[in-house]
Design a protein around this nucleic acid. Structure first.
Lengths: 350, 350
DNA sequence: CGTGTCCATGTGACCGGTCACATGGCTTTG
DNA sequence: CAAAGCCATGTGACCGGTCACATGGACACG
């Protein structure tokens, strides 16, 4: 069970061991407790003493030992992000946001990837993260792997989740999300207003059958009296999106496609192109995410901008609030919004 | 100096405190040291005793305390990745590789982003990472920020770096890299063989003026007696690549462009398109990285495949080796290789 | 059969911080 | 001026592991 873990020496072999709080105390002529007070910004320290101690700290190059602090105080100053894949744009951006906010608060950030929603993977991740030293947990639960971890997490582990809107009800955790429902509705409405008879949808993996994206899309269609085509599912891999696109490309009735994310849109576009159908001349496509390059694609992609970085920041604030009990200033989460570019146009006159 | 850090309680307030090694010992009727031995796979434990202890551990849901272990043993079982940006593909993939390998070895992974190479940012990162509890350090030094950290790192902090080939000489650290020189040369040669008079180059930010990419490109050109155009510099942001592309697009002599990465290629392609120049009809472009979607772009991108995940794994092996002194099995690093797709073709007949 | 060795196990100190409480000086107040 | 209170500081125990060393029994060997 206990894997032989290659350890990494903390006390560096350079010269003597790193100075401790007691070394500093001795050099400054005070007690170690006073040094500790200085370190913790205790109000009850004589300004002269404080300066004196800070001087010595500087001179000795003293650095507090995180492990000792965590052990002694019983609180860890860390946050661990559980993530399925660090290379997907939405995930990576959310991580970036968490890290940024954590850094500003002086918290360390750990990363733990759950490779899949297979029980083994989920269990290992949960065990790892149940260690008190992992600190607060931010689960990026955009998919089944993350959601699985969230569900399996013991109730006494402090955690919040970044999810998709509407997904994953039932757990008592704080859920932070970007509500794409409205934006999905806007996108669909926009396509309809262009004159398309209906809008097809290629979905990315989702925890719930009914993501907010799908809900916004479906509602809009129904309300407009437009036919609601079956959702075409795709995976995270671009190839599956391409295959989904091929199916759609073969159907001459398809003139507008709302894609689960920008990469999906790209692959669908490819399939369309291979079938000799022009974008946006023959078919309009809309993506999701607004990846940095989307504006520079050819044609520039009409897509829904999602502020994942802010989502990450909000998650950090939430976990800190949960764990300290101190309410944190609310993080402004800009709602996802449709950015119209070149990949959408009125349907060709039949 | 010491930021007020919001702490995260390690001892969960659920029921009683988490069981410690001594609780386990008591319940199993042995001494805490024996439990410790079981935990560390010490050979000198009676098999029956071991099973007994493992049983109790299971029953009590005991989890070892990382902080206590680190403190007591003086070794941390963590690795910290210093990274400039988690959202760029190459960076994110390398991180993914490090995490994967670390997870397999039971090491925790921390992430610290350095936002820029400004002295403040670099200093903070270095301080953070100098803490023994950060464990071994993997610096992703693809750019000036990472390189700055690497240079500023005290010699007694164990670290390795993922760099670009040929960059960043002079530090005594292990440097792991994907040698793109040959692939860059291959790409250039390929374009020349297609009949292009020369090949232009849009470079991404680099620590060194002379990255391996540029070297491979330049050498090939010189050796072929082709003119060597000035390198066009671009930033990480897509917009700057687009602007670089605009410059090139205006020059009718430009018929082949080697781009610093795939996103750059995409933006350059856009600029070309706006100038009415077809890819690959009028201009051929080659990217770098082989982002997952590159094969599904329109036209599919000819690019150089880089195995960043393996690079990350190799970095982890290197830092573990450095820190434990135990040589690690070598990680196979596939050399970057040219993948020919649709964005390259012979120049239009003049 | 005495004794040396090895094995399984236990004991006490320690890692570097924090916490709870004690102390002594100075100021405030009745 | 004594009692009370606050402030600056110090002392000892403790967090949950690990390390170094001690102990006692089983077995082997001369």
């Amino acid at each position: 069970m206990t894997g032989r873990s290659s350890g990494i020496p903390a006390r560096r072999r350079g010269r003597e061991a790193a100075p401790s709080i007691r070394d500093v105390a001795a050099a400054a002529g005070v007690s170690y407790q006073t040094v500790s007070r200085v370190l913790n910004d205790s109000p009850n320290v004589n300004p002269d003493t404080r300066r004196q101690v800070l001087d010595v700290i500087e001179r000795l190059g003293y650095r507090p030992n995180r492990a000792a602090r965590a052990l002694g105080s019983g609180r860890s100053s860390a946050v661990t992000v559980v993530i399925a894949n660090t290379t997907l744009y939405g995930y990576a951006s959310t991580l970036q946001g968490v890290e940024e906010a954590a850094r500003l608060k002086g918290l360390a950030v750990g990363v733990r990837v759950v490779e899949s929603d297979r029980p083994v993977d989920v269990r290992h991740a949960v065990e790892y993260v149940s260690d008190p030293n992992a600190g607060g947990i931010v689960v990026i639960a955009f998919d089944a792997a993350g959601a699985g971890v969230l569900r399996a997490l013991p109730a006494d582990v402090p955690a919040v989740a970044a999810t998709e809107a509407g997904g994953l009800t039932g757990t008592p955790r704080s859920m932070i999300y970007l509500d794409e429902r409205q934006a999905a509705a806007d996108a669909t409405k926009y396509l309809l207003s262009l004159g398309h008879r209906t809008v097809h949808h290629v979905a990315i993996p989702s925890e719930t059958g009914t993501s907010a994206r799908q809900a916004g899309w479906r509602d809009t269609l129904e309300r407009a009296g437009a036919p609601v085509p079956a959702v075409v599912p795709a995976g995270w891999d671009v190839r599956s999106a391409y295959l989904a696109g091929r199916g759609l490309a073969a159907d001459p009735d398809v003139t507008a496609i709302l894609c689960g994310n920008d990469d999906t849109a790209m692959a669908v576009r490819r399939a369309l192109h291979e079938a000799g159908r022009d974008v946006p001349g023959d078919v309009s496509i809309v993506g999701f995410d607004d990846v940095p390059g989307a504006a520079y694609w050819t044609p520039a992609l009409t897509t829904v901008r999602m502020d994942f970085v802010a989502l990450g920041r909000a998650c950090l604030a939430a976990i800190v609030a949960e764990v300290t009990g101190v309410p944190q200033p609310a993080v402004e989460l800009a709602p996802p919004s449709l950015v119209v570019r070149e990949s959408t146009a009125p349907p060709r006159q039949a």
